[in-house]
Design a protein around this nucleic acid. Structure first.
Lengths: 195, 195
DNA sequence: TGTACATCAGTGAACGCGCGTTCACTGATGTAC
DNA sequence: TGTACATCAGTGAACGCGCGTTCACTGATGTAC
């Protein structure tokens, strides 16, 4: 039983991985179950042994992708150097190679698909709040963590939309500068207030 | 000829309007030519008298929607009171009713569709740069206008993704506060520097 | 250790359906006389 | 002003195709004796 169920879980994972890649590249409505199963090395008929529907798969893929981000942020923000943690999160998020190759955060690659799917939106609630919490741990302010996440997401979305590579980079650079400078200013204010 | 060509142009416009509504609601891949033509009060066969393909329609719809935004911003930012102009742009952009009803900026409703379509991305280049120019006229700094647009776009994208209405509003409110406070700080710095 | 059977992950044909696009046709409008 | 004809926007059937989902079947693996 154990060996069989392990193999089953591995197959399921292979489908999730293939779907994550193809959904991010083509959008949920831009790719079929058939293509996903082929990328996972299977035939389409077996899909329903692992997932009740394509919609359910879309929700689970979105959730899994964002959970991964959330866990990484939690690990990074767990240390003592909050400034360095924020730096690491921001640099990783705004990395232009990741953005250009379509491996940027699920919030930016699947935003439209998720916004239209109540099931997927609900599945993202927990990891999204977790990411906000990690940011808040770094920054120390709730409102600033909300606007910082917005800035990160918006910069990547715009970099993906921008037709010109230079403009795309400019969005990423401007966001990085705004976040780090904004946070430095907040630290200064806090520092001077303390003295 | 004039009356006929006017009617033709009106029909074309009706298709564009219907497509804008349905693409924003369901995504480009989530709605068919048939449904668009039905919403425009026509049958699907006539579509190709007005557009060479569905892809071309998607590009033109995206461009038209963003051109409208760009023109509004240009008009608003054309006045003398830059601070009030920025206020107006931001309040209009982050309006929670617009966001909730799916009538938010095309950059946030069609972002994924556009990012995947080179033709649409190219069509958005001019209006996107125009919006940045309008922001720069209000704010007076290139980098700040890039990060301000990112903040606006990101907040709306996240508000659309957020499953909880309270969280959605929080993203919009935090972005508004960050932009207006950031701009006030920049004005202060400029003022003190001048003296 | 070897055989018989049960389980069940995976296969691939088939389902009804909607897609994007084409095309022969219709019928209202505009022009020529 | 009235008639004959040309134009062309719009119709709707048809094209091949891929979609999401179902299901009878296969065949490898695991269990019982």
């Amino acid at each position: 039983m154990s060996a069989a169920s392990t193999r089953r879980a591995e197959t399921r994972q292979r489908i999730l991985t293939a779907a994550a890649h193809l959904f991010r590249t083509h959008g949920v409505d831009g790719i079929g179950v058939d293509a996903i199963m082929r990328e996972a090395g299977l035939t389409h008929g077996g899909f329903y042994l692992h997932f009740p529907s394509k919609e359910a798969l879309a929700a689970e893929v979105s959730q899994t992708l964002l959970q991964n981000s959330a866990q990484r942020w939690e690990a990074i923000s767990g240390g003592t150097d909050h400034h360095q943690a924020l730096n690491q999160i921001v640099d990783n998020y705004l990395n232009s190679e990741r953005v250009a190759s379509g491996r940027s955060c699920a919030l930016t690659t699947l935003c439209a698909d998720v916004a239209r799917r109540p099931q997927a939106r609900q599945a993202l609630d927990v990891p999204l709040r977790s990411m906000l919490q990690s940011l808040e741990r770094c920054i120390g302010d709730t409102e600033a963590s909300l606007s910082t996440l917005s800035l990160l997401v918006g910069a990547v979305v715009l970099a993906r939309i921008a037709d010109d590579h230079t403009l795309a980079e400019a969005f990423l650079d401007a966001a990085r500068a705004a976040i780090l400078q904004g946070n430095a200013a907040a630290n200064d204010a806090e520092g001077s207030g303390g003295i």
